[in-house]
Design a binder for these strands. Structure first.
Lengths: 135, 135
DNA sequence: AATAAACTACGAAACTATTCGTAATAAAGC
DNA sequence: GCTTTATTACGAATAGTTTCGTAGTTTATT
C-alpha cells in the first residue's frame, strides 16, 4: 500500500522529525520558524492531518502530543526523486546528475564517494556480462 | 526578474514545446493525451494562463494560435533542481546524486560522461588550489 | 480552588491549481 | 452564402493545501 507523496509543508515537518526524532508540535513549529514565519495552529493542523493520513504517529505524553515520522526518509526521497526525474528531466537520471554536480560545489570527499559508487555499479555490470557469456 | 517556477501542468506543456518547438494547442493536447486524459479546453486554458505569465509567447497563424516557450529548459531545470535538493535532500546534492545513480540503471556511456564531468571538477579544484599557493 | 498558561480541536477562510461547460468567433467545405 | 467544424474566450466549479481564529481542555502556579 504505497502512500501518497507528502506535500511541501508535510515534507518540511518530516525533515525536522527525521533529523531530531519524535517531537512536540511546539518544537517543530519553533524549528520551522527558523526558516519562515508560520503560526502555531497552522503547524498543529498540518501535523494532525498527517497523523490521519498515517504519515505520523502520535503519543500522548502529559499535556503534549509527541509526533514521530511513520514513513522512512530514504523511501520518501526515492519516491519523490522518481517523480522529479520524470517530470523535470523527462526520465533522464544522468542529466539530473550532471546538472546537480554542475550547480553545487561538491567537496572532494563527496566526489570520491560518488566515484566509488559508480565503480561499484560498473563492477556489478561487468559481472552480469560475464555471467551472460557463460550461459 | 526571476520568473516563478512552472507548476506541474505547466511543466508538462513546456516539455512538449521544448521537444517539438512552437506548437498549436491541438498538438500539445494530443501529445498530453498520449500520457493521460485531459480535455482540450483544459490545455487551452493552461496555455493561455502561461502566456499571461510570460512563460509562453503566442503567434496568430490563421485561425490557430501558435505557442512557444519563453523560458529555457536548462535554466528551468536548474531552478527546479535547486528547490528540490533543498526541500527533499536538505541541500545535499551529493546525497541526491547517489540516490539517483542507485535508483536508475545508467548505461556505460552515461557513467562515462559523469566520470568525465567529475574529473573536470577535480581538475578545476586542483588549479584553484595551486593558484592559492602562489599568492 | 481560582487564575494563568500552554496545548488541542474544530471549522472556516484564503489561496492556488486544475478542470471543463458554454458561448463567441473564425475558417473550411459544400 | 450557409452549414459544419475547429478554434478561442470566458467564467465558474472543483479540489487540494495552507492558514489561522476561536473555543475548549488540560496542566501548572499561586
Amino acid at each position: 500500500m504505497a502512500k501518497k507523496n507528502p506535500t511541501e509543508s508535510e515534507l518540511e515537518v518530516l525533515n525536522i522529525l527525521w533529523q531530531h526524532g519524535p517531537s512536540s508540535v511546539r518544537f517543530v513549529n519553533d524549528e520551522l520558524n527558523k526558516k519562515k514565519e508560520v503560526g502555531y495552529t497552522t503547524t498543529l493542523k498540518i501535523m494532525q492531518l498527517m497523523n490521519e493520513k498515517d504519515l505520523l504517529t502520535r503519543e500522548i505524553s502529559g499535556k503534549k502530543h509527541i509526533y514521530a515520522h511513520q514513513i522512512k526518509e530514504k523511501a520518501t526521497q526515492k519516491s519523490l526523486l522518481e517523480k522529479f526525474v520524470d517530470s523535470t528531466f523527462r526520465g533522464s537520471a544522468s542529466k539530473l546528475v550532471l546538472q546537480a554536480l554542475g550547480n553545487h560545489e561538491a567537496s572532494q570527499e563527496e566526489l570520491d564517494e560518488i566515484k566509488a559508487f559508480i565503480e561499484k555499479i560498473e563492477i556489478k555490470a561487468l559481472i552480469k556480462k560475464t555471467e551472460n557469456k557463460k550461459s
